[in-house]
Nucleic acid binder design. Structure first.
Lengths: 148, 148
DNA sequence: TATTGTTATACTCTATAACTATA
DNA sequence: TATAGTTATAGAGTATAACAATA
């Protein structure tokens, strides 16, 4: 928390101790990255694309397991899937345990995801433009240790 | 975007390509850090504490400059300051240019911030617990390059 | 009894557009 | 005309509590 007389360009304001905090830098970095992502993959938010990637990697996964995987309440998943289903990107199918719904990508979902993946590859390039390959790997590793 | 067969412990789900994306790791890390922050400084959210720190470093700053500094619309700042003022942590004072409000910490605001800073120091220790001092510095630097 | 999906409801954070008072 | 603050309104994204169907 040592005081640093840095100024953020454009504002002229003294940022105080904030730039010394990991959480503050994480928030700024995340805002920057998500803004670029949203511009790269229009129409579906970063979180929703993440959901589709999860369904792709786990075809037929139940709503509750999906909710658990992303750390949200299962009631939250209902609206998310309603939305993705309205866009015809996923579909629910009754499971063998008939309390559950399996979630599956539709053909349109797979197709959108294929296009999104190419856009994401470019996005990732831009995000890491000022990092060497080794620095990018180091960043992922350090973030993994924070987020564990 | 290379596929990695990692599993997130506890879910049993295949995370797919997500762990290879900087944005995804940023989001997970930020959630972890903000959760610890919120528990460390109860009653005032991380964003609001950030606002108080900014006001402390820039006494009498106008609402619009504050909004610009955090990248929000000036209309958003109205409710934020209403809330902080209701808690008697800041006060608005009419500026020399009488269109503007200067924002100032109250005595209670300064006192809360002093306590918060000690809690934040402990919080920062926990967040960086698995990082050496050099790694922590490297992380801040890399995040700064992403968020620039 | 316990779990899954659902509904109703509410809260936080944010933005846009239009208004007012000053400059 | 332009700017600072405000209001009304709306849209994401999230959670809690209670319910029906199923296990």
């Amino acid at each position: 928390m040592s005081r640093r007389p840095l100024k953020r360009p454009g504002t002229g304001l003294d940022p105080g101790p904030l730039p010394g905090l990991i959480g503050y830098r994480l928030r700024l970095a995340q805002q920057t990255v998500f803004r670029d992502f949203a511009a790269s993959v229009p129409g579906v938010s970063p979180g929703r694309i993440g959901m589709l990637l999860l369904v792709e990697a786990n075809p037929g996964v139940t709503q509750s397991r999906l909710a658990q995987a992303v750390g949200r309440d299962r009631s939250t998943m209902v609206g998310v899937l309603d939305q993705l289903e309205a866009k015809r990107l996923v579909e629910r199918r009754k499971g063998a345990d008939r309390r559950t719904n399996g979630v599956w990508l539709t053909r349109a979902g797979r197709s959108l995801l294929a296009r999104a993946k190419r856009a994401i590859a470019d996005h990732e390039q831009r995000v890491a433009a000022r990092l060497s390959a080794a620095e990018r790997a180091k960043l992922l590793e350090l973030l993994g240790r924070i987020g564990a």
